[in-house]
Design a protein around this nucleic acid. Structure first.
Length: 650
RNA sequence: GCCCGAGUAGCUCAGACGGCCAGAGCAGGCGCCUUGUAAGCGUCAGGUCGUGGGUUCGAUUCCCACCUCGGGCUCCA
């Protein structure tokens, strides 16, 4: 009997009988692996466990359910089960696409008579899905020609459109398509691979219904989408659901109300926030830090208005390229004004206000500039996606040979700032020229290369996002990971060759000739509001002392300690610390509890012993037990140091 | 913009086959209590039940429209 040689990921080889499948390889390695296997990679291509291996031998890697690829596959398979359930419960429904997504999957349907799903339908559908899982239906792959595919899905217009869209000349399959059949009950057009049987699924939950457009195009049919999450085990599912719950508890919109930080008055309009005094204190601490650092970094502070005439935005190119992101215009005295969507045009005018010499460069203009952008109502999301927000915006004008060192020091500045705010995990994205762009492609290449060099010299890990750049410049977006592992885009850095010629900006070089400056746009927080929102979620509202609106609350044990409490609070305030005190007309425990619910870093307690000894009891947030008899001076020094060093915990 | 869901006190929520003064906890005011580390007691106040129409003898409840908020709107079979 002939054999074939398979090479495993560790480099080892084994002989298998000819005609063996990937599943056989898994079984030959061990029972545990066979049980965990959901699919395999053969010579780098994902295939079903049941697919026969090529007779000439191959490399085989088993994909297990608890790997990213394995979860992807079982989510995809679960989406098929969802489609089967819906087609059975809504006879005549058309089904469109059902891919795996991060943490789960979805499937889009067109229900008969234009019906739509309601939340109550999820239970019914889920119950039917569990029956399908219980039926242990195999996933069986079928290879079809294009015409067979068109015939098989003759009554499914979305599937027909997908098959028609498959390029007949593309790929090894050469115009063929594949389908997966679950017994006689259900068949779906699908490239696969899939788990061997529905019995391999089960740790899933349908989460929500939504509308979605066919192919994401609002001019096409609106479909009904069902989202679900699926995992390799009930334990993993439970962990995910717990994580979702934790994220809900950290939601900055919820904490914003609970901690009295900000709100979005409907009287003002969607996406436009007001900051309350406590939120204002946090924001002020952020902005103070930012200003101090910029001052130290050689930036000069400028201020510009919120409106400008349309001609400015014609010069900058915004009206031509960015009009859909701008607020509508207003007319006054025969001119048309727009709220500014970006600060750059105004900064260009400041540069142009006088002749510049190479000796003036680099010129770094900084502004906490509030901009307004039109965002469709459906995409607004608290402070994270607002219509009015403030950028810690800067434009750096430099000579070509200063570009590299400016970019390198900027990246270092970004990382330092993010670390100060408690973020440790960074990843950058280098976004290159989009389809819709201005300027000379050769200059785009120079700018992109300069950004790449900066990333490499700063040793920041990055990925390239092709075509994701702004219309006027390539950029580096710096992403952070928060306390519960979510990724957020924060800072951005762009190299721009367009604005200088548009505004006819020049500097006189050492050669006494006129030259174009290079311009770097950058924002470290990005949007102060958005950064604030992410900070709330990252810290779950428990801000480190340097940012906390109230750093320490002083409580007397009884109300005859009120004078001492007030004196201690006054002492802290005199030291420049943010402290308050609450009179003792409620039991101490109750007052402690309120302070804890407000997530204050420190609660100080003064009683008879403390009055006598000049000490306080220190109840630190997160500590196991309170400390007694701490001299006031010691506490002041400790909090002072914590604030001055921007200590992350406290 | 479009699909789904939700709007009852400052916050979190209950309630009603259409019918009597619409309830609770927290927060707030006042009083009592005099408290050593996460909820002391009492009392008072607080709501045009999102807005506007319709059905009805009667609507916060049923119907329609609108407003606001939340989730979603290619991660391409």
């Amino acid at each position: 009997m002939s054999t074939l040689t398979v090479t495993l990921p560790d480099g080892s080889t084994r002989e298998m009988p000819a005609g063996s499948t990937a599943g056989d390889v898994a079984a030959s390695i061990g029972r545990g692996l066979a049980k965990a296997a959901v699919a395999a990679e053969v010579n780098g291509a994902e295939v079903d466990l049941s697919s026969p291996l090529p007779p000439e031998g191959c490399e085989v890697a088993i994909i297990t359910a608890n790997s990213p690829k394995g979860r992807h596959i079982l989510r995809h398979s679960t989406a098929h089960v969802l489609a089967q359930a819906v087609l059975q419960l809504w006879p005549g429904a058309k089904f469109a696409i059902g891919p795996p997504i991060e943490n789960g999957f979805y499937y889009d349907f067109d229900l008969p008579g234009g019906a739509s799903f309601s939340d109550d339908d999820l239970d019914r559908i889920e119950a039917r899905m569990r029956e399908i899982v219980g039926e242990d239906q195999p996933f069986e792959r079928e290879e079809l020609t294009r015409d067979e595919g068109l015939a098989m899905f003759a009554d499914q217009p979305y599937k027909i459109e997908i098959i028609a869209g498959v390029d007949p000349d593309e790929g090894a399959a050469g115009g063929s398509v594949s389908a997966y059949r679950n017994t006689g009950r259900f068949v779906d057009l699908c490239r696969g691979p899939h788990v061997p049987s529905t019995s391999r699924l089960g740790s899933f939950k349908l989460t929500r219904v939504a509308g979605a457009y066919w192919r994401g195009d609002e001019h096409k049919a609106q479909l009904q989408r069902i989202y679900g999450t699926a995992w390799e085990s009930d334990k993993a599912l439970a962990e995910h659901l717990k994580q979702v719950e934790e994220a809900e508890k950290r939601d900055h919109r919820r904490l914003g109300v609970e901690l009295d930080l900000f709100h979005f008055p409907s009287e003002i309009g969607g996406g436009l926030a007001v900051f309350h005094p406590k939120g204002g204190l946090i924001r002020k601490a952020m902005e103070d830090y930012s200003r101090t650092e910029h001052e130290a970094g050689g930036y000069e502070f400028v201020y510009t208005p919120h409106l400008a005439k349309s001609t400015l935005f014609e010069t900058s190119g915004h009206l031509q390229w960015y009009a859909e992101g701008m607020y509508p215009p207003m007319e006054m005295e025969g001119a048309t004004y727009y709220p500014k969507p970006m600060n750059c045009p105004m900064h260009m005018l400041i540069y142009r206000s006088q002749q510049r010499s190479y000796r003036d460069l680099p010129l770094r203009l900084f502004e906490l500039g509030t901009v307004y952008r039109f965002e469709r109502s459906g995409v607004l999301h608290g402070l994270l996606r607002a219509r009015g927000f403030t950028q810690d915006d800067s434009h750096i004008f430099c000579t070509p040979d200063q570009l590299e060192s400016e970019l390198a020091s900027l990246l270092a500045f970004v990382i330092r700032l993010l670390r100060t705010f408690g973020f440790e995990d960074f990843e950058a994205e280098l976004a290159t020229r989009p389809e819709k762009y201005v300027g000379d492609p050769a200059e785009w290449d120079i700018a992109t290369e300069a950004l790449r060099l900066a990333l490499e010299s700063a040793e920041v890990p990055y990925v390239v996002a092709e075509g994701e750049g702004a219309f006027y410049a390539p950029k580096i977006d710096v992403h952070i990971r928060d306390a519960i592992g979510r990724r957020w885009q924060m800072s951005t850095l762009q190299v721009d060759f367009q604005l200088a010629p548009r505004f006819d900006l020049e500097f006189t070089g050492a050669d006494n000739a006129r030259h174009r400056p290079y311009i770097i746009h950058r924002a470290l927080f990005g949007s102060v509001e958005r950064f604030f929102g992410v900070l709330v979620e990252h810290h779950a509202g428990a801000f480190p002392a340097w940012l906390a609106p109230v750093q320490a609350r002083v409580l007397g044990v009884r109300n005859d300690h009120d004078d001492t409490a007030a004196a201690v609070a006054a002492r802290l305030k005199a030291e420049g610390l943010r402290a308050d005190w609450v009179q003792g007309d409620e039991p101490l425990g109750a007052r402690i509890r309120r302070a804890k619910l407000d997530k204050l870093p420190y609660v100080l307690v003064v009683g008879d012993d403390d009055v006598a000894a000049g000490t306080v009891g220190v109840n630190a947030r997160g500590a196991d037990r309170p400390e007694r008899g701490v001299p006031v001076d010691d506490f002041v020094a400790r909090l002072r140091a914590e604030v001055d060093t921007h200590a992350a915990v406290g």
